[in-house]
């Protein structure tokens, strides 16, 4: 497989998804909105700008964190497309939390620092949501994505049979799309949160990494809970999933940090009750 082509394709599709996301949000809010290729223009714009490292920054960390973001999601993309372990992808999700934190801390800016602290704060509720992968293991008996796909071919799609787990995963992904109600790390009261001080080429690189991240997370959800499908259908299903999230993002205000954590903990409780129910009922319904 030409992994490089997949990565570049995923970057393009991810940027396009971001653009569509913005457009849909704008239309729901009866604004004209930017064109859907706006995010490409963003990347272009940032890469043509002057670039330097702030004097207060921790230089190596400031620069190295950007390739780290791109690299971990490129790796996750490879794991997804080769049907590797789901655990790796959620490992990457947590590594992304670390890079978010590092982004904020590296610059020395108080806004970045605040965003970084919020990213760790939200990790407190997102990490237990990853217990849902234990739920998937409980249901399917495997964590290899290829096995999960095969299980769904035999037993029906997990979106229906394991709805609470899908709900938990949905919340995880929702917390990572732009303009999310759970996106407390880049709320407007702290400027751009942890991305505040990364401008120019660094910001363009970050946008590339985040585009990859959006694509991978959407594709993971579709693959895990709907199953194997041709590539073009995967794209369409991801887009539909994204549109549902666009509606949520357009219609909900951004939550305060403690509300976001509370809601996510509520979802965790639902998942735990569901798993206890499965355990007592002795297997899948």
């Amino acid at each position: 497989m030409m992994i490089l082509l997949y990565i570049i394709f995923a970057v393009i599709v991810g940027l396009l998804f971001h653009g569509i996301h913005r457009k849909v949000i704008a239309r729901i809010q009866t604004r004209p909105g930017p064109p859907i290729w706006q995010e490409f223009l963003h990347v272009m714009k940032f890469s043509f700008k002057q670039t330097w490292i702030p004097k207060t920054a921790s230089k190596v960390l400031f620069v190295a964190i950007v390739p780290a973001v791109i690299a971990i999601w490129a790796g996750a993309l490879y794991v997804l497309f080769t049907g590797g372990s789901l655990l790796v992808i959620f490992g990457v999700y947590l590594l992304h939390k670390i890079t978010e934190h590092g982004l904020g801390l590296s610059s020395g800016s108080p806004y970045g620092k605040l965003g970084a602290i919020r990213s760790v704060l939200s990790a407190a509720s997102e990490i237990p949501l990853i217990a849902s992968i234990a739920g998937i293991y409980f249901v399917t008996g495997s964590l290899m994505i290829s096995d999960i796909v095969a299980y769904q071919a035999d037993h029906g799609i997990l979106l229906i049979t394991a709805l609470p787990i899908a709900l938990a995963m949905y919340v995880i992904i929702l917390s990572k799309v732009p303009y999310s109600p759970f996106g407390i790390i880049e709320a407007k009261e702290i400027v751009s949160g942890n991305k505040t001080e990364h401008f120019g080429a660094f910001r363009a690189g970050l946008e590339v990494g985040f585009a990859l991240k959006t694509f991978v997370l959407l594709a993971v959800f579709v693959t895990l809970f709907i199953g194997a499908m041709p590539f073009w259908m995967l794209l369409i299903a991801s887009l539909i999933l994204l549109l549902t999230m666009s509606f949520i993002c357009a219609l909900t205000p951004m939550l305060s940090p403690y509300d976001a954590v509370t809601i996510q903990i509520g979802v965790i409780i639902i998942v735990i009750i569901y798993m206890a129910f499965i355990a007592f009922a002795g297997g899948m319904p």
Binding site: I7, S47, T51, A68, A71, A74, A204
Partner: peptide
């Protein structure tokens, strides 16, 4: 995975 981020960043730096 290691070389691609380097490519992206250096490309953008070259474009700046």
């Amino acid at each position: 995975v290691v070389a691609f981020p380097v490519f992206v960043l250096s490309l953008f730096t070259a474009l700046r």
